[in-house]
Design a protein around this nucleic acid. Structure first.
Length: 255
DNA sequence: ATGGTGGTCCAACCA
């Protein structure tokens, strides 16, 4: 199973790029974030033409997630239990016996802001829910835009970023609580190029300078992680005309 | 030290 995550920053704008990438990369599963569409407006037909099933949990203007898969999907969850949240940031589906949890973690704006508090509360509720999901699904992958750079080596200039949002100790501790459940950041299970990132700010020519962060992650349960063959970033779509500010991250499992 | 860009949708918010 080849599985990928991509924050597309508007599927209306990026649909041609997503279909182009699907045809060249041929993943079995692709999960999208920031589709910025209501669920009813999701272009199911465009994916059906390419042989993919699609499910979306969207809203107007902001957020929104979708799962696209060769196989059919079932046991759909769109909300973290116990968290009353109108923002569409979660889509869990079971695909060929693998539990796939697609996340668009809140950005958090700045340390100490209301949005930062929302992010930390969201991550605490996520942790409890994932513990329950792991108890039910031995083979589970949780992937998406985490809006957290796990370590300084995931940041182009850690001294400049310091403890700012996306890198703050509390956010990294919240991510640590997820890995403490047995979830493995599979990207770090393999040799990687120096300065491998998944997001580059549109501003200040971030991509040209490789001034990026690795904030798009693929975590696999301890039962599934040993079956991971490879994990890597595909920088190419970030170099295309009118790109998303994120690029796809991929993991391949021999299951 | 500040502001830069881009998406949504046309003023202001979000990232």
């Amino acid at each position: 199973m080849k599985i990928a995550t991509w924050n597309v920053n508007s599927l209306k704008v990026r649909l041609p790029q997503v279909t182009e990438w699907l045809q060249s990369a041929q993943p079995d599963v692709l999960v999208l974030q920031e589709i910025k569409l209501v669920s009813e407006a999701f272009p199911v037909d465009a994916f059906a033409e390419l042989g993919y099933h699609a499910l979306a949990s969207g809203q107007k203007t902001y957020n929104g997630v979708a799962n696209i898969a060769r196989a059919s999907m079932h046991d759909v969850i769109t909300d973290i239990p116990g968290l009353d949240d109108p923002q569409r940031r979660v889509l869990a589906t079971t695909i060929n016996g693998i539990r796939v949890v697609n996340l668009y973690v809140p950005n958090g704006q700045s340390v100490g802001s209301d949005k930062y508090a929302y992010k930390l509360g969201w991550l605490a509720a996520l942790r409890d829910w994932l513990a329950a999901e792991l108890a039910q699904h031995e083979r589970l992958v949780v992937l998406g835009d985490f809006n957290i750079a796990p370590e300084d080596r995931d940041v182009y200039d850690p001294d400049k970023w310091g403890d700012d949002v996306l890198c703050s100790p509390a956010e990294r501790a919240a991510l640590g609580e997820l890995t403490a459940l047995g979830l493995v950041d599979v990207f770090r299970e393999f040799d990687q190029p120096e300065a491998a990132y998944s997001w580059w700010d549109y501003r200040a020519a971030g991509f040209r300078r490789n001034a990026g962060l690795r904030i798009d992650l693929i975590l696999a349960s301890s039962a599934l992680a040993p079956y991971c063959n490879a994990s890597y970033v595909d920088r190419e779509p970030r170099s295309w005309e009118r790109p998303s500010d994120h690029t796809p991250v991929i993991a391949e499992f021999r299951v």
